[in-house]
Design a protein around this nucleic acid. Structure first.
Lengths: 328, 328
DNA sequence: CTGAAAGCGCTTACAG
DNA sequence: CTGAAAGCGCTTACAG
């Protein structure tokens, strides 16, 4: 591999001068500049990032920790991050936890060792150990999807989105509305979305039968099973169901169809996510668009701002948009 | 940050000895070992990967170049790669081309500069410039999805999969079978899948009306439009259509429904992909499962084998599996 | 079994 | 405007 030393020799200058030329730092005479430029073009020399990192302590790499890589939400967030970072010549070092909370913590250390310039964490929980770890990282860090005190975060407006979609069901004449949620250690998807649902129900003085509220995990099959529990355990059947993710809703619809129930005539279904497919299931799904690419983009912007010490907001609350289709 | 020098001082040994201890290379006496171990545990010292890389020329990072990050296929491949690499302590440096062929080439250089230990390229074409670049990389490299001479590759059996699914349509009594493909510069998805289709049609001596064969790009809407072209331009309507990807098929079904045509009664639909959603569209889609996670896993294994100079195969042909559902 | 020294490829005060 | 020198945090022959 070609090094700065060889370039310097070929151009008849010192390494310092080549370095100055490369980084546009300090003066380099016109003649020297020309000679160096020529040599670099001829040889195709590219400086070693590692040597550079060792000196400057900058790597132009951002670590991204994800709970899972193969969902649409994750990949859109990563796409958003990547697009924004690429503009500034940064790259992504990926760390996939596979929903293992222990790894979420481990990866924070691992990425630090790799000397990333910053970390974007797509968080699934706000357990104390994780929060503490994040706060002690001493490295630019941005959280997506959860709020942690003292940490820059990009969050979805789970409470209001959830409330709005429940309100929409009420507007459409529904009074008996079931709910498929997830575990509340996930503050955003679990806790706040449930809270939004209850808030809407309370304001309309609608009763919530305990069997209407079921907890699932993040896959289609789990939505199917939750819907089954709702139908089999309830003495009074709901006329609508709000599932906190599209996949859960799709699972629920799949069970309803199997039972010969019509959506939305017998039971209306709504959810949050606006996955590409939500348009193409039958009937098409009424859902909320969370602008995941925007979340990634904003997180990238924030981390870049922290690194360059320009201004940034500690908390960015993202917009959402209700998409009305045929499942309600 | 703590360095090896400080650890050495604290443990009363030289840096060399600490290094030997860390890497299990060469002798370290029991006493020295104990002292070093103690100091490291107490301080939580972690060696700098950059300094290490600078010396050893190894980074434990594999660059992964993807045409796009937000499709199910991509994310499954990445998940497969990641799982396998993580076992050996390797990480992924992500490079997303957004389907820009120019970037595919640029990123090869960029990743090389980043000193990755190897590159996995999820390729979309086999244009000469790219192939030449890959062959000249002089760095462990594995291609997924395309075959390039002299380059280790993990490929899907596009020709046979395509032929088999066409044969299946014929078995089901279809004689007039349309085809929605993509541009043939994508050898795998474009060229070989089309070839498989023609091969099956020829062997059964079935005629292919030129208006039945349409070219699309990789999104749902494009499948919708291609189906529209088939129906509006054909004097003889097909009774079945084979789309080369699930998304294309879903777009096609969406147009058919809009026209009041029934799937599969009026027109049967089949495709390749086995995306999660293919089960949940209505009717559920007959498709081919390509084991994308396995592709990623195999590619990761290959690259690790190349790096460690153990045996590896130059070409791995993956299995596929026909999934028979209700759209045919 | 251990340590001194050189070197990996850069950048950055500093002196001129 | 330029170069010599030190240093970033490691590893690796080599000598003892």
């Amino acid at each position: 591999m070609l090094t700065i030393k060889e370039i310097a020799e070929m151009a008849n200058v010192s390494r310092s001068t080549v370095s100055r030329f490369l980084n546009d730092s300090g003066y380099v005479s016109e003649e020297a500049r020309k000679r160096i430029d020529k040599v670099i073009k001829e040889t195709g020399y590219i400086p070693s990032e590692h040597a550079k990192s060792l000196r400057t302590k900058k790597t132009k790499v951002i670590g991204v920790i994800l709970p899972t890589i193969h969902t649409e939400t994750s990949s859109k967030i990563v796409a958003g991050i990547d697009n924004e970072l690429a503009k500034q010549g940064y790259q992504i070092l990926l760390a996939n936890t596979n929903l293992d909370k222990e790894k979420e913590i481990e990866y924070l250390d691992l990425l630090k060792v790799r000397q990333v310039d910053g970390i974007i964490l797509v968080a699934t929980n706000t357990e104390e150990r994780l929060v503490k770890k994040v706060q002690e990282m001493n490295l630019p860090i941005v959280i997506i999807g959860q709020h942690m005190p003292g940490v820059t975060s990009v969050v979805y407006d789970d409470f209001h989105a959830s409330k709005e979609i429940t309100n929409y069901l009420v507007e459409k004449g529904h009074k008996k509305i079931a709910f498929i949620g997830v575990d509340e250690t996930d503050r955003s998807v679990g806790y706040f979305r449930k809270k939004g649902y209850y808030s809407a129900m309370n304001e309309h003085r609608l009763e919530v039968n305990s069997t209407w509220v079921q907890t699932a995990i993040f896959d289609i099959d789990s939505g199917y099973k939750a819907m089954k529990r709702i139908l089999t355990k309830s003495s009074i059947l709901p006329t609508a169901v709000f599932a906190v993710t599209d996949r859960l809703a799709i699972g629920a619809m799949s069970y309803l169809k199997e039972q010969g129930l019509l959506v939305p005539d017998d039971i209306a279904v709504a959810s949050i996510g606006a996955s590409e497919i939500s348009r193409y299931v039958d009937p098409s799904l009424t859902t909320v668009d969370y602008h995941n690419e925007m979340a990634g983009k904003q997180a990238a912007k924030q981390i870049l701002a922290i690194i360059s010490k320009t201004e940034y907001q500690e908390k960015i609350l993202l917009n959402y948009r209700l998409i009305i289709r045929n499942s309600v």
